[in-house]
């Protein structure tokens, strides 16, 4: 094939290149009628594969797929970097793109505040809140601790060597730990050990490597009632799956209430029609039998909310989290 000179061979190559360029250059905008997704929807998860947020996202994917509620597939994408910073910055960069949505944790509030990110909840479009995950205080069954009084005594007896396992630092579990320490005058007596995920935290309690945790019910369930014992719940009312466990409110600490919101957000500036379509989609999902079953089995609070009330909820949560962080001295005005 050496007979052909390079210059001659280049002609078809250049033709191909040029024609491709022209095709690309021709592309402009597309008119949007009554909105429906026209390409796969990127379902961004602000945590790694296999974590709590990831599980919820994949469950949602399952429900939407099975019921054929969307003409395009939901594609879960994990952007776990920087405690959610990577995911939120990604959404900021996708401003106006209606084919990207984000499923959140509470780092949705804490990370932008702590890391001074150019993005927070106000730069995104709130779409829907589906559930509020609950928290319990757990100890190892071998510890013999039966109630909150035992717990406080045991912590004090360890003289500052009590350990509390949790996921990540300056995130939900540490906030809850701090709330506990403040309420029971245990400041400086509990050492917080950060782990990678809720399942690992629970395992370390079950194996006796840490003294206590504030796991979600779903994380504690594999070891309950054999190895892990819940002492009290951080909910306003008792959790149906753990009827025998008192709430902190009953124990005289009504301020010890904390939830993890599971909600959906879209980038800022998406078309109104698109927002309406998503709201409708997640409204169907939140009221589906599958979602009801899952939430009751996993002791989550099913909590459907959208529109203006959701915006207000986010604003309230944002203030609450900033206050918590300030209380820990991690954030200044």
């Amino acid at each position: 094939m050496k007979s052909l000179k390079p210059s001659k061979r280049a002609i078809p190559f250049l033709t191909l290149a040029l024609s491709l360029l022209i095709v690309v250059a021709l592309g402009t905008t597309q008119a949007l009628a009554a909105w429906k997704p026209t390409r796969p929807i990127e379902f961004v998860i602000m945590a790694g594969k296999g974590g709590g947020a990831d599980r919820i996202a994949r469950l949602m994917q399952k429900i939407v797929t099975q019921n054929k509620w969307s003409p395009q597939p939901l594609v879960p994408i994990n952007k776990k970097g920087g405690s959610g910073a990577e995911a939120m910055l990604y959404l900021l960069s996708k401003k106006g793109n209606p084919h990207v949505i984000l499923v959140t944790l509470n780092s949705f509030f804490t990370t932008p505040a702590l890391r001074k990110l150019p993005v927070n909840y106000t730069k995104l479009t709130p779409v829907y809140r589906l559930a509020m995950d609950t928290f319990l205080l757990w100890v190892n069954t071998k510890s013999g601790i039966k109630n909150m009084d035992d717990f406080v005594k045991a912590v004090k007896a360890k003289k500052g060597k009590w350990t509390m396992g949790g996921t990540g630092k300056m995130q939900e579990d540490q906030l809850v730990t701090n709330m506990l320490m403040q309420a029971y005058g245990l400041k400086g007596m509990i050492t917080y050990v950060p782990f990678r995920g809720g399942g690992t935290v629970a395992k370390n309690l079950a194996g006796g490597h840490v003294d206590s945790t504030v796991n979600n019910p779903s994380e504690g369930l594999p070891h309950y009632p054999g190895k892990m014992k819940p002492i009290a719940a951080l909910t306003p009312e008792r959790i149906p799956a753990f009827k025998e466990v008192p709430t902190f409110k009953e124990l005289g600490q009504p301020q010890l209430v904390y939830f993890m919101q599971r909600s959906i957000n879209a980038p800022g500036g998406i078309p109104k029609d698109a927002l309406a379509w998503y709201t409708d989609l997640f409204n169907k999902l939140c009221n589906s039998k599958e979602w009801k079953d899952y939430t009751s089995k996993k002791a989550l609070n099913r909590a459907c909310l959208s529109g203006a009330p959701l915006g207000k909820f986010f604003a309230d949560e944002d203030v609450k989290h900033k206050k918590l962080l300030m209380g820990m001295g991690l954030l200044k005005n």
Binding site: K49, G50, D54, L59, G199, A202, K297
Partner: peptide
């Protein structure tokens, strides 16, 4: 135990939860 021994089983564990 409900603890993943590898990244892959972490995803499979998620699937267990999805199936209830």
């Amino acid at each position: 135990l409900g603890i993943p021994g590898s990244p892959t089983t972490a995803v499979m564990l998620g699937a267990l939860f999805v199936w209830g």
